[in-house]
Write a protein that binds this DNA or RNA. Structure first.
Lengths: 132, 132
DNA sequence: TAAAAAGTGTTATAATATAACATATCAAAT
DNA sequence: ATTTGATATGTTATATTATAACACTTTTTA
């Protein structure tokens, strides 16, 4: 079965639903707080669900913020290539959709005798709304 | 006074010395442990030194590993553009020296109506030594 | 040399994440 | 249909990473 079609468990679906309806990345303990009513009562339940969702590419972690965001790409099943635009003014985060980043980075890596496998890119700046 | 020429305090120098002689990135509490003899006895002392060193570009944080590494560039005085090659086999980390990454990312960002300011790139793969 | 800015030492605590374990559920393959 | 192996669950406890707060000291600069 393809990863992207994988059936989610209750906890996984609960966490994914919350992230998908959120306008912004959420922190693990915010997710915990917001899912108490759905039966998620302890940190491991959140982290396990996140681990699985990240593994199948439905969720990404913003490393520099310790926060988690639902993937905006259709049928994304990759957890290996991530690139974000993070607004320093309003904290909005969007995914940078750039098909050729992996090959670009692979080329750069090769020049340093390094075999590229995956990447995480976090770009900071000012988003469209905040430049107005 | 230029940032890169800034005079460091005792604690800052102690932490920088340790990182510079380390072959690998260090975690904050490892730094704390290794600098006890030098009078650093509590976490805030480490984090303050790191904050300053990061600010002046002498040290970078590997976000996805919560670890810190001395900058390998001569007279680096920037904390705004970082790119690392992280070996998944041996955990060795090296900085990717690529002058044109900022302009490349600025261009990519522009296409998403995003005003680029700085970036952090973490590439995972296999280093030269580990491919042998 | 006074004032402002930056750093220090210290205690306490916040925020983020995982270990461990007994039990439960699910998938698949005989 | 039933065993089996893999995966998930609920729970308690704890590990790891990082900051708040405060009184005091040192350094810089006007």
């Amino acid at each position: 079965m393809a990863l992207s079609a994988e059936k989610l468990t209750n906890n996984q679906q609960t966490v994914l639903d919350l992230l998908e309806k959120s306008k912004e990345p959420l922190k693990a303990y915010a997710i915990l707080y917001d899912t108490q009513k759905k039966g998620i009562t302890a940190p491991p339940q959140v982290y396990r669900a996140l681990d699985k969702l990240i593994e199948i590419g439905k969720v990404h972690k913003i490393e520099s913020r310790n926060s988690y965001i639902a993937c905006t790409h259709k049928n994304c099943n990759s957890s290996t290539n991530t690139a974000f635009l993070i607004c320093e003014t309003c904290d909005h985060v969007s995914e940078l959709t750039q098909k050729n980043l992996p090959s670009y980075f692979a080329k750069q890596s090769e020049q340093a005798d390094f075999k590229y496998a995956k990447h995480n890119l976090e770009i900071y700046g000012v988003c469209k709304d905040c430049t107005k």
